[in-house]
Design a protein around this nucleic acid. Sequence first.
DNA 1: GATAGTTGATATTTATAACTATCATGTTTG
DNA 2: CAAACATGATAGTTATAAATATCAACTATC
Lengths: 149, 149
Amino acid sequence: MFEIRKDITDANTPVYTISTAAHLLGISIPTLRMYEKEGLIIPYKKESNQRRYSQNDLYRVKCIRETINGTKISIQGIKHLLSLIPCWKIKNCSTDERAVCEAFISHDKPCWMYPHKNNLCSEIPCISCEVYTKLSDCKKVKETIKIYL
Amino acid sequence: MFEIRKDITDANTPVYTISTAAHLLGISIPTLRMYEKEGLIIPYKKESNQRRYSQNDLYRVKCIRETINGTKISIQGIKHLLSLIPCWKIKNCSTDERAVCEAFISHDKPCWMYPHKNNLCSEIPCISCEVYTKLSDCKKVKETIKIYL
DNA sequence: GATAGTTGATATTTATAACTATCATGTTTG
DNA sequence: CAAACATGATAGTTATAAATATCAACTATC
C-alpha cells in the first residue's frame, strides 16, 4: 500500500484511493477534497461514489500546490486563470453557442465548473474532455492561449 | 485638500499627491507604494521623484482592491493575470522580437514590469503605452484576450 | 460480520499575504 | 527657513486563505 504503481502503463487510469493519493503527495485527505470542490481537479468516481486518482491526477495536484505555495497564486486566482483557457476555440463552438455559454462569458472558474446542459459539452463528461485533460499544469495557460492567438 | 478635483477634464492628468490619493481611496500610503512596487500601477513621477496620481489611477487601484478583497485573487495572481494581456498582438511585434521578449515568454508579471531595452517598447514609456492604459480593470483580461483570439 | 477505509460536513489550527506604523532623510511650499 | 509632506526601508499587526482534525454515517475487503 501507499506505493506508486509502475505496472499501470496509462497515466490516466484511476488506481489510487484518496488515502494513497494523499500519502504519495504528502498532504491530507481534506485538502484533496478541497481542491476538488474548488474545481481544480476532477478525480474519477466509482459507482459507489468513491474517488480514484490516476498518475496524471497526482501530477495535477503537484502543479496546483507549486502554484499555491511557490508562485503564491491563491486558489481563486488559479480558478480565474483556468477560466481563460479558450475552450470555445478548442471545442470550436458556434457564435450562438458562445452567446449562451457561461464558460465563454464568465471568468471566475474553469469551464468544467459550470453546469453543462444544452450545449455540445454535455456530450462528453468533463473528466475526459480535452480542455480538462490537455492542461494538467495551470502555469501553462499562457502557452495554451498563445496557440490560438 | 483631500477632495476629488472636478476641474480636471482629463482623467489621465496626474494631480493628486500620494496622501490625497490614499485618503480618497481609504487606504494607507504604504499600501499604494506596495501596489506600485508589485507593478499593479504606474503613477506619474515628477522630476523630484514625487508621485502624482490621476483619476484613472484611483479607478485602477479601486479595481485592484475589489479583486484582492472581493474576488480573493492574490497580488501574485493579479500579476500573473496581467501577464496574459497579449501585448505582442496589441503592439504587433515581429516573430524575432517575440523570441527575445520576456513579456512574451514569461508569465509571472505584467509586460511593463520587465526591463525594456532593445525592443520596440523602449520607444514609449509604459505609463503611456496602450497595453497599460487601455486595461484599467484587471478583471477584464479575458475580454481583452477574446478580441485577439 | 468485523476491520479498515470511505463519504460529506463542520470546527479548528496554522501559516502568511495584505496592510499599517514608524523611521531617518529629503523635497515642497508659503 | 519653518512646517508640511514626500521619499524608501524596516518592523510590526491583522485578517484570512490554506490546511487539518474530527465527526457520524456509509462502503469495501477479507
